[in-house]
Nucleic acid binder design. Structure first.
Ligand code: FES
Ligand code: FES
Lengths: 151, 151
DNA sequence: TTATATCATACAAATCCTATAGGAATTATA
DNA sequence: TATAATTCCTATAGGATTTGTATGATATAA
């Protein structure tokens, strides 16, 4: 698995929406500027996130985006799969399983790669956007409020 | 991390050399045909593996390649790093560590990505080429000898 | 001398990624 | 109603990366 710029932008943007969950919509312009993400590029990413059911939008003036579920119901794994594909170093879970079962000349190799994909999934499917918020806040120095986004 | 065709070819080729360790050199033509790897592409990959110190070559007629260390002294991690770069979903270990320590707006996110890279490294740096040989043989049906390469 | 292999570089083709552009549709507000 | 601000949608350019081919040089066993 590899996280592209596109994927990193998506994650950062969703973190911004997580910090603002329950406070209405946030506009892309604001996120784009704060995170240094090219505006028109971000627009495309958000369309994908919307089609994937992670965010919902409000059109028109004063429109914007918000999470469509609470941050604790969205895992990192779900985001990364949506934007950058399977969480495996090669192929995907079922493909790797098949290669192992075929018992070919490299089944041992694929078995280890399947272990890797399972280890990655175990972490990324467990960590929710909310967990990341908490972790980030914990990592801040006491007294700093760098994690505050748009309030 | 993502394993490219190039990386997969390298791993398969090194497995062939592992199964033949101690029996002299193996020629690329043979590996290329058996594994379905484009011959001239494989040549390039082998040069990289040689420069990385994983294999040594014998030139001229009856030449070929062999592992420069025993299969148990070469880890999957070392191979993948050499061909496809760092074992992290984003950047590399020291870069991720730095991003976490900076305590920026996304330190929590990078902390989890560092966990992922650590999980991947833990597996791939531990598994040696010999381990893969053993695993592959174990996965074969009794009586089959599909793992036998060039004997 | 010949056949066969590695070594090295250059380059072509295809694919993927990043980013930009232009405009349509929608909505709040003056 | 007019205007401004925003999401929505598609096309496409440019660049980077990956994959593979071509050509020839060099080394060595027979
Ligand atoms: S980071 Fe690629 S599968 Fe784990
Ligand atoms: S497979 Fe990409 S870092 Fe684990």
């Amino acid at each position: 698995m590899k996280i592209s710029h596109r994927g990193e932008y998506a994650l950062k943007c969703l973190m911004a929406l997580s910090f603002n969950y329950g406070k209405g919509v946030v506009q892309l312009r604001s996120i784009s500027e704060k995170e240094g993400i090219p505006y028109k590029f971000l627009e495309q990413i958000m369309i994908a996130l919307k089609q994937g059911g992670l965010v919902k939008s409000q059109k028109g003036k004063l429109g914007g985006y918000q999470l469509s579920r609470s941050p604790e119901e969205i895992s990192l794994g779900e985001v990364i799969r949506l934007i950058d594909g399977p969480l495996a170093p090669l192929g995907n879970e079922s493909e790797l399983k098949k290669l192992v079962k075929e018992r070919g000349r490299h089944s041992g190799l694929y078995a280890v790669l399947l272990d890797v994909r399972n280890a990655c999934s175990a972490i990324l499917d467990k960590q929710s956007l909310r967990d990341i918020c908490v972790k980030t806040i914990e990592l801040q120095e006491k007294g700093t409020e760098a994690y505050m986004y748009f309030i």
